[in-house]
Write a protein that binds this DNA or RNA. Sequence first.
RNA 1: GGCCAGUUCGUCUAACGGUUAGGACUCAAGAUUUUCAUUCUUGCAAUAGGGGUUCGAUUCCCCUACUGGCUACCA
Length: 517
Amino acid sequence: MSKEKVRVRFAPSPTGPLHMGGVRTALFNYLFARKHGGTFVLRIEDTDMQRFVPGAEQYIIDALRWCGIVPDEGVDDSGSVVSEPSGRHPYAPYRQSDRKNLYEKYALQLVNRNDAYYAFDTPAELASYRHEAESQGETFIYNHAFRKKTVNSLNMDPAEVSRRIGESNNWVIRFKVPEDKTIAMHDLIRGDISVQSGTLDDKVLWKAQDGLPTYHLANIVDDYLMRITHVIRGEEWLPSLPLHYLLYESFGWQKQRPQFAHLPLLLKPDGQGKLSKRDGDRLGFPVFPLEWTSPSGEKSRGYREDGYYPEAFINMIALLGWNPGTEQEIFSMEELTARFSLERVIKSGARFNPEKAKWFNQQYLRNRSDSQLAQDFLPLLRDRGITTTALKAEQVVSLIRNRAGFVKDFWDLSDYFFIPPESYDPAMQKKIWKPGIRSIVEGTRKVLALCEPFDATTIEQALHRWIEAEGFKTGQVMNALRLCLVGKPQGPGLSDIMAVIGREDTLKRIDHALNTL
RNA sequence: GGCCAGUUCGUCUAACGGUUAGGACUCAAGAUUUUCAUUCUUGCAAUAGGGGUUCGAUUCCCCUACUGGCUACCA
């Protein structure tokens, strides 16, 4: 490894919301930078004007911030750059569309070195070649053999080349892949990889149509100019690695070439293929950190809106394709930073398990105090028109917290604390409300009316003393009371419930049940 | 089809030549309990197949199968 300061980048394309696989790539870059005291750069790769989606860039910034992944350098939400402490913006701008005038000279440099060439095939021609090959069960590949048969600057008069370039933008610059060369590469996660250049195609580097470089050119140039030391990206880029090696070589930048690490992909919970937006809709879980509304108005759910704590989301995602080698599963960002290493990244794709995601959130929920959870819960109560005190919310939360995976579950688990039952569970009623039970409940009412103080311990003792004296069965009595007070066979200990709702409400609920049942 | 990468319980994964192949999620059973949960205990469940190398292979090598990615003037 080089001794120079670690600089990594996360370089998303604003073609839609950032999905959880992208967040994980950003996270691993972020952790790697933190771990090595390096710099984490956010660069926006918007060289594809056709697929540009308004709002996507802002979404990426917002999503990363919600996750606690804050860039040291790069585009921020004001559209400018995050400044260094010195106030300088050493490698700005960080949006490729703002850097567009700087790529052309590099493309030309490759042409002049005879490592790239102008090609004049029209899209229609290429489509027809492809079609033809397919009809014979083959795949069209634009390689060294093909470029000898078609018109390009390699086999044309230079004057004719400049004439054609001048008169239309119906041309591209393609990389001239060596015919027969072994490209030996190294990946920090996968080890040594080698590919024969003959199997590669002459990738387009420059799109004349919109006057912009393609990903491959812009990416290599920017990584070089921004002095990126480590490229940590998804496995879908592995097939491009040979091209990228070749580009570094053609530019004469081998010494500055970053080290590469290709992360395993996130796979669908079921079926085949990589995780996609559709899977979330189909199986009922979010694939995006934040809710997203597409320009056409289509909504996709988000982890934030589904009630996940960002810490839980990050924790869950960190353990998809990486593990610390110990049995610890719960990590703060600081702990992740301390433990993270590329050596422990898994090579194979990780199937996403929505059940385990919920479990992570539950763990974080359990680590919060009653008063923190009450603060989380209060706004939800307000939304339902419930006015209550922080104290009562805290009491309720302490009783129901271990039944929930999310704060948004709290209401369904505790509604009877705030509003008396409107109906009584029929099955429970049938089982509990038998002849003779009415007088027993009336008896408990008398006990409760006199119980002083009206707290859980005292209530419990008073009730049990009475039940024992009368010779009843505890279950029979308590279940009947539960039917009256809660209306369903659920919830924490009854004396706790009564203490929270208070004597007045308790007696009212009993009277109402006696009148109704 | 071609190229590249991968393959341990249903899922996420540990074991970097010697373990009764461990943990977590899920599921099941039992205990506790006034209900429902929680909690605790227990259980089910894996080295893709075939060849090598080795005293010994989950681990190293080869072949096969399967899985994934890529194969655009997209990233």
